[in-house]
Amino acid sequence: MSRSGTLVVAITSLVLGVSGLVWTSWTASNIRAILLLASAILCGCVYQCPPFRLNYQGLGEPLCFAAFGPFATTAFYLLLGTSSEMRQIPLSTRVLSSSLLVGFTTSLILFCSHFHQVEGDLAVGKFSPLVRLGTEKGAFVVRLAIRLLYSMLLVLVVVFLDITQ
């Protein structure tokens, strides 16, 4: 496929995807969900698209954390309920905590995806956190992050465990 054909397919996919999300949010009468989804999409655009390409400066992990964690997870939570109840319902600590876990896990997966491409990233001038740290320190960060992730999960289970049921 030609470069222009790929661009047309990419733009068409983006427009269809955004249209579907806006339609769903509109149907649910939830403007907060639209704004959160727009923020998640914006994070994805500045992550990869020119002229920003913030992933080359090592900002992919924080952008993915925000996009998939607090923005997208919270938006989809707001869209899952009935429109009348979700317009009024405040965001709970459970939802926000869950979104942090999703964002943290997504960022960790992205971080780990760079282990096999450190040399290639350096060659094209991409300064991912793993390029900056090196693979040895990066492996230490992964072990620490996994421990932190499971600790957070354990704390949240204990805190939100409803023993009355």
Rank of each mutant, 00 (worst) to 15 (best):
R3G: 11
S4G: 08
S4F: 14
G5P: 01
V8Y: 06
T12G: 15
S13Q: 14
S13N: 13
S13Y: 11
G17S: 13
S19H: 12
S19A: 15
G20Y: 11
G20I: 08
L21R: 03
L21V: 10
W23G: 08
T24A: 15
T24V: 10
S25R: 12
W26F: 13
T27L: 11
T27G: 09
T27Y: 12
N30M: 09
R32D: 11
R32I: 11
A33L: 12
I34H: 00
L35V: 14
L36P: 12
L36W: 11
L36N: 10
L36C: 10
L37I: 15
L37C: 12
A38P: 13
A38G: 15
S39G: 15
S39I: 12
A40W: 09
C43A: 05
C45D: 07
Q48K: 14
C49F: 13
C49D: 06
P51I: 05
P51Q: 04
P51C: 07
N55G: 03
N55H: 13
Q57F: 09
G58P: 06
L59V: 05
G60E: 03
L63V: 00
C64N: 15
F65S: 03
A66E: 03
A67D: 02
F68W: 04
F68D: 00
G69V: 08
F71S: 12
A72C: 08
T74C: 07
A75K: 02
F76R: 01
Y77D: 09
L79E: 04
G81N: 06
M86Q: 13
M86P: 01
R87E: 13
Q88D: 07
Q88E: 07
L91I: 15
T93E: 06
V95S: 05
V95C: 05
S99R: 07
L101K: 07
L101V: 11
G103V: 06
G103Y: 02
T106I: 12
S107Y: 01
S107L: 08
S107N: 05
L108T: 05
L108N: 06
L108S: 08
I109P: 04
F111W: 04
H114K: 07
F115M: 04
F115T: 02
H116V: 00
G120P: 00
L122W: 05
L122Q: 15
K126H: 07
S128G: 02
S128R: 01
P129F: 00
V131L: 12
R132D: 06
G134P: 10
K137N: 06
K137S: 04
G138M: 03
G138A: 01
G138R: 00
A139P: 00
A139E: 03
F140K: 06
V142I: 11
V142Q: 04
L144D: 03
A145W: 03
R147V: 13
R147C: 14
L148N: 02
L148F: 08
S151Q: 02
V155G: 10
V155P: 03
L156T: 12
V158F: 14
L161N: 06
D162W: 13
I163N: 07
T164D: 10
Q165G: 13
